[in-house]
């Protein structure tokens, strides 16, 4: 390594301040990568969540495939109501569409439409949760409680975790809706909607996986 190079003259530092864009509306980020801290943070968090759900899904797959002699209660697979779950999966899937439409509206500063789509997304999410509550109660009525057997513990834990994620997402969507109503969500801060959207879509793709691995593929 040579030591002979001149260090950068200090004026460069002063120069740099002039490059700071003055246009408040431009979505520029003064970071080394040019990416926003918040968005990068959310992606990191989602990467981490992959391992959380991976673990829960694995625990379920392991225990569903296990042949337990004299297992108490019914097997989870015998209770599935596939048409019902298909509908609620479809509802969650479409909530991803309304989410992205809301983002696209707020980026165009079309606040009324953005709010409508935000609320629609939250409602679709709530419909999904209601479906999950119905599913759980009907399973319990058929004799599959949380502690009944291995499969039931794993099933309720996995889908319950997912449900909690959806619920948190709904809370965030409602907060965004209220913020927007109060005028605290101008188009320049559309990134907030985008970040909540990332979380929402993530919850959706996790359900895409759960729907196939847990519900559709036979044990």
């Amino acid at each position: 390594m040579s030591v002979s190079e001149q260090t950068a003259p200090p004026e460069v530092v002063a120069d740099r301040a002039d490059h700071v864009p003055h246009d408040a509306a431009a979505p520029a980020h003064h970071t080394s990568t040019g990416l926003s801290n918040e968005k990068l943070g959310m992606w990191l968090f989602l990467g981490s969540e992959c391992l959380l759900f991976g673990g829960l899904i694995s625990a379920f797959l392991l225990y569903r495939s296990k042949d337990v002699e004299g297992m108490v209660g019914p097997a989870v697979g015998d209770l599935y109501d596939i048409p019902f779950t298909s509908v609620s999966s479809f509802v969650l899937l479409m909530s991803s569409l309304t989410m992205v439409l809301s983002l696209s509206a707020i980026q165009r500063a079309d606040h009324r439409r953005a709010r409508t789509w935000l609320l629609t997304t939250a409602m679709l999410g709530a419909t999904f949760i209601a479906g999950q509550v119905y599913e759980f109660t009907s399973f319990v009525r058929e004799g599959l409680g949380y502690t009944t057997n291995l499969q039931s513990s794993a099933f309720y834990t996995l889908t319950g975790f997912h449900g909690v994620h959806v619920t948190i997402g709904i809370l965030m969507l409602v907060s965004l809706f209220v913020m927007s109503l109060r005028g605290r969500l101008p188009a320049e801060r559309s990134e907030t909607v985008e970040i909540v959207g990332l979380y929402w879509h993530f919850v959706d793709i996790i359900w895409i996986i759960i729907f196939t691995l847990v519900y559709l593929i036979p044990a």
Binding site: T33, L35, G47, E49, L51
Partner: peptide, 26 residues
Amino acid sequence: VVAWFMHLRFDSNLFTRVFVSGLVLA
């Protein structure tokens, strides 16, 4: 969903790398 709704197709590569490393690891 990841490519279009989450914009990974259009967004910085770094996001893709972060997310895919978590996914592949999992």
